[in-house]
Computed example of a mutant assay.
Amino acid sequence: MAGKQPLNIVKMKKMKQDGVPISMLTAYDYPSARLAEEADIDMILVGDSLGNVVLGYDSTIPVTLDDMVYHTRSVARGAEHTFIVADMPFMTYHGSVDESLKGVRRLMQEGHAHAVKLEGGAEIADTVRRIVQAGVPVLGHIGLTPQSVNQIGGYRVQGKDQADAERLMRDAKALEEAGAFAVVLELVTEESAAEITQALSIPTIGIGAGRYCDGQVLVYHDILKYASPYREKRFVKTYADIGTAVREGIAQYVREVKERAFPAEEHIFTTAQKTAAAGPVYGSGKEKVPGS
């Protein structure tokens, strides 16, 4: 959006201090990023959830660094004035620091991200610290961490007992101390998320973590019901049902082709038409006809 001033990590911390909620949405390609920016979203996350909603996998684990670079670059072209965070995919930041930094470099230089997101708490704090020291903003992610779903026993709400709540608090503080500019809390009890939010000086971004986080993030395809079949989620609110609209639009197109109702007279060209009278071929008329 022309004239829009993108957020930065200093402004986000000020938003927390002032009690101004931060809006965040996932996007995975040029048109979805452009639409999100036009809707004045604060931040875009190029999540490895693209494995589920774009690439057709049943988890985020098969998503590669090449996948993330490709989709982040597409999003960056569509949202030139929005702060963009890219996920580090499965097992790209658990080996040597040098290998982790190579992945970060690719997301920043080739993908044009402004920051990276890593899943995990205290166990990855040293890696977070080294990435931050290299000059790259890091968004933490604790609670339900989809890349570890096989280890934690499925998609389960976190922080339901005192011991688990204390673990989450330790992880959040470890990420803050390591230099993370914010922390995503996914599928965390509202009570635990509220305590973490109050304890940290950096923003918390909730997804299924209740009402008291400093911001919220949801998946593009969830808020728009852009899937088939769509699986309802308790923590998601549907703002538009474009999945049904897309299906119905395509079905109508198929019917009209079968019935020879499309193309109609207004969609065709004849030798008798004069170019000036025929009207634009594409959009504003400034575009070239393919092959011309």
Rank of each mutant, 00 (worst) to 15 (best):
P137Y: 01
G135P: 07
V63D: 04
I131F: 01
L139G: 07
D66C: 05
V69S: 03
E123N: 14
H114L: 05
Y93R: 06
R73V: 11
G121F: 02
T92G: 10
H94I: 11
A113H: 09
T127I: 14
I131K: 04
Q109C: 13
F90K: 06
G78H: 11
V75R: 00
H114K: 06
G78Q: 08
E110N: 12
G121E: 02
D67I: 03
A125S: 15
A76V: 12
F90W: 13
T60P: 07
D98K: 15
V138Q: 00
V136I: 14
E119V: 07
Q109E: 15
E110D: 15
R130S: 11
K117M: 03
G78M: 01
H94E: 12
L65P: 07
G135T: 10
S59D: 01
V63N: 04
G95V: 06
H94G: 09
P89K: 02
D126M: 08
A122T: 14
R73H: 14
F90G: 09
T92S: 14
V75W: 01
A86T: 07
F83E: 12
V138N: 02
V138F: 04
G140H: 04
V136A: 02
E110L: 14
I84S: 08
G140M: 06
D98G: 15
T82Q: 06
R77N: 12
L101F: 08
D98V: 13
S100H: 10
Y93L: 09
A76Q: 13
E80P: 13
V116A: 01
V128K: 05
G120W: 08
S74Q: 15
T60W: 00
V128W: 00
V136H: 05
V97K: 11
H71P: 11
G120L: 06
V128T: 07
T82I: 09
G120S: 08
I124C: 12
M68G: 05
L65Y: 03
E99N: 14
A86L: 09
I124L: 08
V85D: 00
D87C: 01
T82E: 05
R106F: 06
S100N: 13
I84F: 05
T82K: 05
F90M: 06
Y70C: 11
H114V: 08
L107N: 00
S96D: 09
E99D: 15
S100E: 10
F83A: 13
Q133K: 14
R130D: 13
G103Y: 05
G120D: 02
I61S: 02
G103E: 05
R129Y: 09
L139A: 05
G135D: 12
D66R: 12
A122F: 02
S74T: 11
I131M: 00
A113V: 08
H71A: 04
I61N: 11
D126K: 12
T64Q: 14
G111Q: 11
T60Y: 04
I84A: 01
T60K: 06
E119Q: 04
A115Q: 05
L139I: 03
S59E: 02
D98H: 13
S74Y: 04
I124F: 07
R106S: 10
E99M: 14
T72M: 03
S74V: 04
S100C: 15
H141G: 03
V63S: 09
D98R: 15
L107H: 03
P89L: 10
V116L: 06
K117T: 04
T72C: 12
V85I: 15
T82C: 11
